[in-house]
Design a protein around this nucleic acid. Structure first.
Lengths: 295, 295
DNA sequence: CGTATTATACTCTTATTGAGCATAATAGGA
DNA sequence: TCCTATTATGCTCAATAAGAGTATAATACG
């Protein structure tokens, strides 16, 4: 156990908040990196280490923290000598009043993945920019089988040729673009593997909101059902049928009325609701799914 | 970056195989520990490190590897000085002919979690042993609210008081028994956190077989539908309606007939099937769910 | 008072899923 | 040979969940 075996561990956070239906991620260095800090022997645990420095970046407590993935550098970037392990986390918080301390800035996550936002229909950039260049990449190999396989992957991941768009394949799409050498062609860049880690976080959150009531970690205490819906839509990157959304929320008793009415935002005033924290006990980790269509 | 900051990383494997519908896990030291090895700078990646020593334990290739969880020791066991990080993996393999090299032994995983096997109905030990002792633990606190909360947790996790059994709550149940000081009361023990890691692996696998065709990593090349069903049942720890199982497998085109017939095992001979490897391309990571009831 | 906008209540159709019945094909004994 | 046990396989039915649309209620604003 000399220094030859010595390694270090970095904690990297994908910290998410949603403002007015817009999902944001906390970044540093002008949006080029995710906040991260070294794990030190003084930290009680990995999560404690993460929380320790996250509180230096934002005043809000992390409502929910979940581990994403651990990897050693050199899995992509070969490097001599000292090895570093990166442990990434997904954290959910409310973007309240006092934040953006120092150089930390909240960025719309679709700035990094513009092709992931289908709320206004399929983004044009898929047909106009990515599609053609992906097809070029798919036609490159000499063997017919390899070409076909690439074509298939593209169709499935990007919902082409009769396939439907699957909003959970964020990471797979990023990997595909990476292999095709296209990640620089669209969306804002990040240092090292950070953009890939962000993709992992988005994918995880999109998958999670379907069967676990985590959206509420991102909501203010009181909210209307439309605000809730907009948050889910922002995360999923697609629109939801309003009436069905309400049906599901209500029949699962995820929320209760506060008794108050929202000051109208342009139409009939809406009832205000709050999350029934008890459901976290009730269903334990299981159940409690949100809509977000399936096919 | 003196030695003060130095940490080490261990790779721990939950290596699973299924024989005749019986799920097994590879263990060392007489079933007391999961195989694990130190991550070394020479390893190309964490997974490469894992594969490197797993091949010293079993001749079979890992068909499927998935990261489980990373934690620092001291999250449970406080320790002075040098810190170690543990990165655990779930690996699936086929238990073929040449294995159990050295001290490695395959053990039925229900030996460690006997309350998890509901294939023959709810295990008696829940009513007779765990139930009463859990209730004793639930009645201990002074405050009424705490007692109620504990009672709720027990009911939900163990499917009592009208709640249905949820086979995915393996880890939650283990944690509950741990808090109640009952893990020594039932099931075989393991060193350090290994039993908890195993619980994590079982939970992950049970969740995964529902929407991802990973069972096939555990099957021989050719198999009957009943053999496949028995494997799923073994993993899930519960029985499945046979006809519905076949319906789902077939309508999803997960398998294709080999054209051969199994030498009868007691009744009408069954067709042999093989996994359609192409579905792994087709659906990418998504879709392809197995049954295993829900409520 | 009409229009735009959002809220909320129902209805209808289609899949999916849990459960069961019925029949087919084999082995083994009476 | 026939009866029984056992597994395979095909099909129906009812209950639920999910996608999609229609209709009506409240508000603000001109």
């Amino acid at each position: 156990m000399g220094t030859a075996n010595a390694i270090s561990a970095d904690l990297i956070a994908v910290l998410v908040a949603v403002t007015a239906g817009c999902p944001r991620v906390l970044t540093i260095r002008d949006g080029l990196a995710l906040p991260s800090g070294r794990f030190e022997p003084g930290h009680r645990s990995l999560q404690a280490g993460l929380r320790a420095w996250v509180e230096q970046q934002t005043r809000h407590p992390l409502g929910y923290v979940e581990q994403l993935y651990t990897f050693a550098d050199g899995e992509r970037i070969s490097q001599a000598g000292h090895r570093a392990i990166s442990i990434s986390y997904l954290g959910l918080t409310r973007q309240g009043s006092g934040e953006t301390c120092g150089s930390a800035i909240w960025h719309d996550w679709y700035r990094y993945f513009p092709w992931e936002d289908h709320r206004g229909g399929r983004p044009e950039m898929i047909e106009l920019l990515l599609g053609p260049r992906l097809r070029g990449w798919a036609d490159a190999p000499g063997e017919r089988a390899a070409r076909h396989q690439r074509g298939q992957r593209i169709a499935i991941n990007f919902g082409l040729d009769g396939h439907t768009w699957n909003d959970e394949l964020v990471l797979q799409r990023y990997e595909l673009l990476y292999e095709a050498g296209l990640v620089a062609a669209a969306g804002k860049a990040m240092e090292a593997d950070h953009r890939r880690i962000l993709a992992t976080g988005i994918a995880r959150l999109r998958a999670k909101i379907r069967y676990h009531p985590v959206v509420f970690e991102l909501m203010p205490p009181d909210f209307t059902l439309l605000q809730l819906q907009r948050s889910v839509e922002g995360i999923a990157g697609r629109l939801i049928h309003k009436q069905n959304f309400r049906r599901l929320i209500e029949q699962q008793a995820l929320v209760e009325e506060t008794g108050e009415i929202a000051t109208a935002t342009g139409g009939r005033p809406a009832k205000l609701f709050r999350f029934r924290r008890q459901v976290l006990d009730d269903r334990a980790v299981a159940g409690a799914k949100l809509p977000v269509v399936r096919a």
